[in-house]
Design a protein around this nucleic acid. Structure first.
Lengths: 146, 146
DNA sequence: ATTTTTAATGATAATTATTATTAAGTGAAT
DNA sequence: ATTCACTTAATAATAATTATCATTAAAAAT
């Protein structure tokens, strides 16, 4: 069966880009750290563990490229750095974030939840929704226990 | 009756800060441009029209302070700059944004829309919501006409 | 009132995140 | 083999923001 990396390779070549070793290394890091929300710097440091010669700008370019191809989502939580999330396979790529204002942890919600809201917005404001970002800020379950 | 600037003054003094002339000038600019989503640079240029001697750092410091006091919301749409919105008086300060991917315009939705969703999130993920950010990216009604 | 302390400011340097440039490397297609 | 487009690493450049620091204004204490 086709691996995720194969599929990403196809997405790249479909847009006439190549899966170079640097790009592959970057994608692998994203695959291996899917839970986290890595910044470009994070990705760079992780990629460099296995590919010590990669440049930071290459990582930025690769992430930007993957973002354009909708392989990753570039998101911002307000701390000044962009973070990059691999999109989930197929289905709804919609997911939301829970940012804890105590410990800074970022959890994910893998459900849409917004179908109804979107229908209202499209109709009432006459706006064609292509994407959305929903983040809740508050106290995570771990910090509530403390 | 109490003006908004008076109320902000109270919020500052309540936290033992003063409403200095520079801070007041900054707040006035925010009040006079409530529709827009001004960046620090925008605010700086507008403040300087009336208070030519103000420094950029002071504007940044003031905006940061106002953000900590929850007088303004510091938001990011992904274009690399932080923007500062005065919070609405009392009531639900919740509002959402429509960012047009064609022309870059940012419109506001002054309705909550998320009550139901929040109830679900609080219960299912055991997360105490203090705030949220919801942004839709898509095509605004103006660009649809073109 | 005058000193003492504290807070806030303006100017500017430093930092951080990101993007652009450049020169060199690589590989597919002649 | 040679060309040509793509990609890269290194580095420079830029933009946004933050830190530093000497100076000033205000408040508190004498």
């Amino acid at each position: 069966m086709e691996s995720r990396i194969d599929r990403i390779k196809k997405q790249l070549s479909g847009a006439s880009y190549k899966l170079t070793p640097q790009r592959e290394a970057t994608v692998r890091v994203l695959l291996e750290n899917e839970e986290d929300h890595l910044s470009a710097e994070d990705v760079f440091l992780l990629v460099r563990e296995k590919s010590p010669d990669i440049g930071l700008a290459t990582v930025y370019r690769t992430l930007e490229l993957l973002n354009e191809l909708n392989v990753v989502d570039k998101i911002q939580f307000g701390d000044g750095v962009s973070r990059y999330d691999l999109r989930q396979e197929g289905a709804a790529h919609f997911h939301h974030h829970l940012v804890c204002i105590e410990c800074g942890a970022v959890d994910e919600i893998q459900e849409d939840l917004l179908e109804d809201v979107e229908a209202i917005v499209e109709k009432k404001w006459n706006f064609i929704i292509k994407d959305h970002r929903l983040t809740f800020h508050g106290i995570c379950h771990r910090c509530q226990d403390k």
